[in-house]
Amino acid sequence: MEDTIDTNAERKCWMGLLAKAPEGRAAALLDAALTRPGFTWLRAPEIGSVMVRGRAGGTGAPFNLGEMTVTRCALKLSGGAVGHAYIQGRRKACAEAAALIDALMQTHAGADLRASVLEPLAAEQAAAKQARAAKAAATKVDFFTMVRGED
């Protein structure tokens, strides 16, 4: 059981990375790493929406904030591994690459792909986040009190 939880946590992490990857990036890294294996569609890429929720006051009762576009698909490798993708936007080719990576991560190719696809994606996303945070930090106000001239 513990194994399942650990595997799920890792899978959750890489699926999140793939969902947030910029247009075409995951596919480019995948194709640089290996030749795509054959697969069959369990669910061909499909564009739809997900209703995003917020909470009143940030922490209270949930409410419907609005929808976002999402592309999903599922496929099966000849070896039996099943890959899923749910990614933001209308991006069928990206969804296909994400589902392939998800499936391949469950095979012996996983270790290679971790180094050649997931780690670069994670590093790029962290760098982009860090660059924005650094610009925000530069706009932080440093208050200082003027000396009052009354006495």
């Binding site: 929406s49 209703m51 995003v52 929720r53 929808e67 924005r132």
Partner: peptide
């Protein structure tokens, strides 16, 4: 658009703030 589902409520406390 077909609706695939609803998200978990977003956690604005974890926002990466600009």
């Amino acid at each position: 658009l077909p609706r695939f589902g609803c998200s978990e409520a977003v956690d604005t406390g974890a926002m990466a703030c600009d």
